[in-house]
Nucleic acid binder design. Structure first.
Length: 583
RNA sequence: GGCGCCGUAGCCAAGUGGCUAAGGCAGCGGAUUGCAAAUCCGCCAUCGGCGGUUCGAAUCCGCCCGGCGCCUCCA
C-alpha cells in the first residue's frame, strides 16, 4: 500500500475545531453524505455537497487512502407523498424520475466518485431492526402506530449543536399528543389513508426522516465510521438526531468527523435557496425581492431544473465556480457570477492550446499521476543547478497540496494553479517554445513537467479531464469555413491590404470567432454565448465571393465556392444574391 | 429569545498573532503586434467601526453597526 499522507486536517462541526485526520481503521475511509429527498428537480444548491465531497474523495484516494463514499437517496417522505398526490403518479415513479435528474446533473458536474447510492426504501428491514433495537434499549417507544425517539433518555442529546433536550420543548408539532416530550421525534410514522406503507411490528407505516441514515450508515460502514457530511442546514435537527439514534443504540460515536458544506444563497437579501424566505409570509418589499430572485432562479435553472443551466454554462464552469470558494462558506449564486468566475477558466484553456502547439499533443492526454507518494517521487528527480523554473513548479505543487491538506481549501489551492500557468507561459515566451528551430529539448522537458503537474493537481479538483468544448458535427463545418476566411485574410495581409484583412477579422469577431495571429499562421477560437456562429460566417464568405465576382476575379470566386462545398456548405446563385444550405 | 456564522480592493475570494495582505474578474500603464487578440512586465486594499490585550493583530477579547443560518422532514 502507498504510504499515507498524514498531514490532512479537517474542520469538525462536532468539536468546532480543525483536527488532524486519522481514520478509524488505518488506511480506510468511509464517507457518508446526506443526499437529496427526490421529490422535485435538483437546483444548484444540491450540487455543492456532492462537488466538494467528490473532491475530498479524490484527494484522500490520491493521498493513499482506500475510500468508500456513499450518498443516500431519500425516496420516501411527506413531500414525496404530496407530489405523488399532486401529479397523480406513484411515489416510487416520482422518486425514480427525480433520482435520474439528480444523477445526470451530478454526472455533468464531473461527480463520478460515488461508490454507493442506497435508497431508504431498499433498506426497510434494517431500518425496522434499528428501531426495534432502540425500543429494546429503552430509548424509543411506540405510541398509537408511531414510534418516537425519547430525547430525554439521551443525556448527550444536543452535543452537536450545543443545545439541551429541555430547551427544545416547542409545541411538538402535529403528533404532540402521542409524544412523551415535545422534543421527541418520529422513528416510524403510521400510514394514513392512501399513503404508501411498509409492514412493521407497529403496523403499516413508513420511516421517520433521520432513521434511514443511522440504519444505512451502519450497513455500509458499521457502528463508527469516519466522515459524515451534509449541508449546514442539516446540522439540526437531522444530524443531531442521527447521533442520538446511533450513539444510544451502539454506545459509541457514530462518526469521527462531521463535515458540513456552506449553503448557497440567491442574493444578499433573500437568504438561501429554498430557505425560510422562500416559504414564509413576506412583506410586500420582501416579496418584490423574492420575485426577482425567483425569476433569476427560474430563468437560470429553467423549467426543467438545473439541467438547462448546465446546458448553457457547462458542467466545468459550474464546478469551477463552486470550488473557487472554501466549502464551508456561503456562496451567492447567480448566472452572472458563474459566468464571471468562469472567465478565469479561459486562462487554462488557452494554456492547453499552447501546450498542444508546443508538444503536438493534447494536454488532456497526459495521464495524471494518481498517487501522492508516486508524484512526490517524480518531484524528487535531481534538478540541474540553477534550474529555477523546475524548482518553482515544485514549489507551486507543494503549496497546492499544503492548502488542500488544510481542510480542503480548494479556493486557495486554485491560486497555485493560476500561478503555475503564468509561470509556464512566461517560460514558453522566454525560451521560444513554440518555435521548433529556436527551442531546446531541455526547456521543452521543463515545460512538460509543469504541464504534468498541472494535470496531476487539476485532476484532484476534477477539472480539465477533457477538452472544454465537446466537438459537435457543426464544429467541423465551422472550422473549415473559418480556415477559408483566414486564408483569404492571410492573402490580404500578404499584399499589405490591411483594410481588407481587418474587415475580415472584424466580421469574424462579429460572428463570435476571435482571431490570434502568430508565427506560422493565425489561430482562432469561438468566443460566443450564441451557438449560431455558422450562418454569419457563411454570409461573410458569400460577401467575399460576391466581391471577387464584381472584380471579375472568377478563379477566386470559384475557389470560395468550392471550398465551401468541401466544407459541406452548398451555394446557390440567384438573381438577388447567393443562398446556402448545409449538405 | 436560544445556538451559530459572516463583514478583506469596484466585484469575487484566500489568509485567523510577526516577511512586501494569495489568486480570479474588471480597470490602468508598458512590452509584443501592421493594427488587434493572446502572452509577458508593472500599477491597483491596512482588512465594517470604536476600545482593549500584546514588543507586534486583518488574525485574540469587549462593545457597536451591517448581513446571514438553524431552532419548522431545506443539500
Amino acid at each position: 500500500m502507498a504510504p499515507l499522507a498524514k498531514n490532512i486536517r479537517v474542520y469538525n462541526t462536532l468539536t468546532k475545531h480543525k483536527e488532524h485526520f486519522e481514520p478509524v481503521q488505518p488506511g480506510k475511509v468511509g464517507i457518508y453524505l446526506c443526499g437529496p429527498t427526490v421529490y422535485k428537480e435538483s437546483h444548484i444548491g444540491h450540487m455543492v455537497g456532492p462537488v466538494i465531497f467528490d473532491t475530498i474523495k479524490r484527494y484522500l484516494v490520491y493521498s493513499g487512502y482506500n475510500v468508500t463514499w456513499l450518498v443516500n437517496i431519500t425516496d420516501v417522505d411527506d413531500k414525496l407523498i404530496a407530489q405523488s398526490r399532486e401529479r397523480g403518479l406513484p411515489m416510487a415513479q416520482i422518486a425514480e424520475e427525480m433520482t435520474q435528474d439528480y444523477l445526470s446533473n451530478l454526472a455533468t458536474l464531473g461527480v463520478d466518485q460515488i461508490d454507493q447510492l442506497p435508497r431508504a426504501t431498499e433498506n426497510m428491514g434494517e431500518i425496522i431492526l434499528f428501531i426495534e433495537q432502540l425500543i429494546e434499549k429503552g430509548f424509543a417507544y411506540a405510541s398509537g402506530g408511531d414510534v418516537f425517539f425519547d430525547v430525554l433518555s439521551d443525556p448527550e442529546y444536543g452535543k452537536l449543536t450545543n443545545r439541551s433536550a429541555e430547551s427544545q420543548q416547542g409545541e411538538g408539532g402535529g403528533a404532540a399528543d402521542k409524544k412523551h416530550s415535545a422534543a421527541d421525534f418520529a422513528l416510524w410514522k403510521a400510514a394514513k389513508e392512501d399513503e404508501p406503507f411498509w409492514e412493521s411490528p407497529w403496523g403499516k407505516g413508513r420511516p421517520g426522516w433521520h432513521i434511514e441514515c443511522s440504519a444505512m450508515s451502519r450497513v455500509a460502514f458499521g457502528e463508527t465510521f469516519d466522515i459524515h457530511g451534509g449541508g449546514l442546514d442539516l446540522v439540526f435537527p437531522h444530524h443531531e438526531n442521527e447521533i442520538a439514534q446511533s450513539e444510544c443504540c451502539h454506545g459509541k460515536p457514530m462518526a469521527k468527523y462531521w463535515l458540513h458544506n456552506g449553503l448557497m444563497r440567491a442574493d444578499s437579501a433573500s437568504g438561501k435557496l429554498g430557505g425560510r424566505a422562500d416559504r414564509e409570509e413576506q412583506t410586500e418589499e420582501q416579496a418584490a425581492v423574492q420575485a426577482t430572485v425567483d425569476n433569476k432562479i427560474s430563468r437560470s435553472t429553467g423549467g426543467g431544473g438545473l439541467a438547462d443551466l448546465v446546458a448553457r454554462q457547462g458542467g466545468e464552469k459550474i464546478r469551477f465556480f463552486l470550488l473557487r470558494t472554501q466549502y464551508r462558506s456561503t456562496i451567492v449564486f447567480g448566472e452572472a457570477q458563474i459566468a464571471e468566475a468562469a472567465t478565469g477558466l479561459e486562462t487554462f484553456y488557452r494554456f492547453f492550446e499552447r501546450h498542444e502547439r508546443v508538444q503536438g499533443r493534447s494536454f488532456h492526454d497526459i495521464q495524471p499521476i494518481a498517487s501522492r507518494a508516486e508524484a512526490n517521487a517524480a518531484d524528487q528527480k535531481p534538478k540541474a543547478a540553477g534550474d529555477t523554473t523546475r524548482a518553482e513548479i515544485t514549489r507551486h505543487r507543494e503549496n497546492f497540496l499544503a492548502k488542500m491538506d488544510d481542510d480542503f481549501n480548494t479556493g486557495a489551492a486554485l491560486s497555485e494553479l493560476f500561478d503555475l500557468v503564468h509561470l509556464l507561459n512566461k517560460f514558453a515566451d522566454q525560451h521560444n517554445l513554440e518555435d521548433a528551430s529556436l527551442r531546446s529539448e531541455q526547456n521543452v522537458a521543463v515545460f512538460q513537467r509543469g504541464a504534468e503537474v498541472l494535470r496531476e493537481l487539476s485532476a484532484l479538483l476534477g477539472l480539465f479531464g477533457q477538452p472544454a468544448q465537446a466537438a459537435s458535427a457543426n464544429d467541423a463545418v465551422i472550422g473549415k469555413v473559418v480556415e477559408l476566411l483566414l486564408e483569404l485574410r492571410g492573402q490580404a495581409r500578404g499584399r499589405k491590404d490591411f483594410a481588407a484583412a481587418d474587415q475580415l477579422r472584424d466580421a469574424l469577431a462579429a460572428a463570435g470567432v476571435v482571431v490570434e495571429d502568430r508565427q506560422g499562421g493565425a489561430g482562432w477560437r469561438i468566443e460566443s454565448d450564441d451557438a449560431e456562429v455558422l450562418p454569419p460566417l457563411v454570409e461573410v464568405a458569400i460577401a467575399q465571393r460576391a466581391a471577387a465576382r464584381a472584380n471579375k476575379d472568377y478563379p477566386l470566386s470559384d475557389l470560395i465556392r468550392d471550398r465551401l462545398a468541401a466544407a459541406g456548405v452548398v451555394l446557390e446563385d440567384r438573381p438577388e444574391g447567393a443562398t446556402w444550405r448545409l449538405e
